[in-house]
Write a protein that binds this DNA or RNA. Structure first.
Lengths: 330, 330
DNA sequence: CTGAAAGCGCTAACAT
DNA sequence: ATGTTAGCGCTTTCAG
């Protein structure tokens, strides 16, 4: 910047101000300075600015796994929200090898705040501990324990109800619920919603993967529990479940109906009946909450205990659900 | 750090050195300092360090779209490679709203280098322009024009050959090649490879989406060109193609065989015969090349023109290909 | 083995 | 409307 100032025949102060617009500069001077800046393709060293102003104008987003399109949509929402405040977004994937690195980025000032999507209990705890000292908001999944952190999630209970009602209305009574981890509130809520309409359902739990879906249906088949439908905790599990059903010679939805949850791209591709989470809106709202939280910290306030915000979900009927057969599988 | 030094009764110099290990500190002193650091949960302000040392120890990865699992695997590979050098990885998605932001992060020193996966011509040009001044490596797709940038891509030509040979061996002659954009070298190479074995193939181009796959098959059907197989440019296109075939009452692979490319998660889910790209290896190699490139820039050297490295692909036969029918569709 | 002090490049009072 | 200058928090010679 010294260089630019010297060449343009002004002080560094002036260069700084034509760049920031923080105080009036005569058009003539401004033009001259800009010309030099462009000619030399000068870009201010952000570290110097950060050191001085005390913040980076960058926020982070921690996602469990980049492979899920749902998270990508959510990310777009977050970026939309924070960019309107002039902030940039950095995405960190916890599925990468150094899960704790993004926490360092927050603590060392590389980022001004974080939108965190809970996934692994160990990291979650660290996040909760950090949230007293740095702006953090939780999205997609509530944190275990009452942290009082700003949180926005989909209305999983309602989603479960929609699935349960749809199945019940089609005559299903004997249902297999392939649920996600018991520790995840979203998973538990979905089960509760489903059971309101299908009280006799058998609940089997596993993680949110296709493998778990396969294995859990396998268990149910072996156990001899007869069921006419499978309500999976998410689309991945539904995929695995369908694979196992097909392997058993059962047709979907002819013999067994199957539902998912999330509405990822694959769901549309294979015609899976599922519940759409408002991924984009979740992201936007999370970004807004983070902005608020950053402002709060700047103002010296700390956590203002709030209860989680719930965003509405939508039922998407496709081709994996039909009326229940008289005789239950297997 | 002043605080820490004062409380521990040492100089900031000493605190700095117990943190960096850049010079011997007596165990007694070091322990005392570390105790204070932990007690106050002190983390150095990275901006100050960066300002002083001139680099951030962070590199970036630009991916076209987070929704594709292939890119996530590649990302893991990059992180694996750079973390061994003590660098952190920041991921930027071009599908987000501000595609140029990551270039700013490179230019303003937030990142020391960039692994770039070409996707949008406009951004690609800017990258190429920047590559003379900052460490950049290209992965997954060659940049148009002879940029001489370090590049690592899958062996698309070989992939095309594998597809072509597989189809030819099963008696297919009349083939529809649903290709990706003509401007993408990867796409062009795949077509060349396929045509070596299926010279009479009809080539129709579109972008790498399911919609394009659907539309292109639709065109072929309307045109009356009879074909017994569809070789798609990637898995997405293959998905769209299959959707259109099914809509026409054609069974896969009974009436028409279909192949994809990439081997994304959906391919496995629906049993698509495809070609697996070595995503993880691509990432590792890209990370290694970036490390080299950063070292080169540090040493004052600039671009050392190199030719693209090719990584081997693997053919994955599943359930969407079979022997050709006597009569070609439609 | 430890300290003092000079900046890294920028911003923002405080001048003029 | 513009310039002078004092740091932001760290690393690193240079001196003990």
């Amino acid at each position: 910047m010294q260089q630019i100032a010297r060449i343009a025949g002004v002080s560094v102060t002036t260069v700084s101000h034509v760049l920031s617009g923080n105080r009036p500069v005569s058009p003539r001077t401004a033009d001259r300075v800009m010309a030099v800046i462009r000619q030399y393709d000068y870009v201010p060293v952000s570290a110097a600015r950060r050191l001085k102003v005390g913040h980076s104008s960058l926020v982070g987003l921690v996602v469990p796994d980049l492979t899920v399109s749902y998270f990508a949509q959510l990310a777009k929402g977050v970026e939309l929200a924070v960019e309107s405040a002039g902030l940039g977004l950095i995405i960190c994937s916890m599925s990468l090898r150094t899960p704790r690195r993004h926490l360092d980025l927050l603590r060392d000032g590389t980022m001004d705040g974080l939108v965190h999507l809970p996934f692994a209990a160990r990291v979650d705890e660290e996040i909760a501990a950090l949230a007293g000292d740095y702006p953090v908001v939780i999205a997609d999944e509530e944190l275990a324990g009452d942290t009082g952190l700003p949180t926005v999630v989909a209305d999983n209970l309602q989603g479960g109800r929609l699935v349960g009602r749809h199945l019940a209305e089609r005559g299903h009574r004997r249902a297999l619920i392939v649920a996600g981890p018991e520790t995840m509130l979203s998973s538990a809520q979905r089960v509760v919603g489903i059971k309101e309409h299908l009280p006799q359902a058998l609940v089997l739990r596993g993680d949110f993967t296709a493998e778990a879906g396969y294995r859990l249906v396998d268990e149910a088949l072996e156990s001899g529990f007869g069921f006419t439908c499978v309500a999976a905790g998410n689309d991945e599990q539904a995929l695995g479940a369908m694979r196992r059903l097909r392997a058993a010679g059962l047709s979907v939805p002819g013999d067994v109906s199957v539902t998912g949850f999330d509405d990822v791209a694959v769901a549309d591709a294979i015609g899976l009946t599922t519940v759409r989470q408002p991924a984009h809106d979740l992201g936007i709202r999370a970004g807004e909450l983070l902005l608020q939280q950053i402002a709060r910290f700047d103002a010296g306030e700390r956590r203002a205990a709030v209860s989680p915000e719930l965003l509405p979900v939508a039922f998407v009927e496709r081709r994996t659900t039909a009326a229940a057969r008289a005789r239950a599988a297997p």
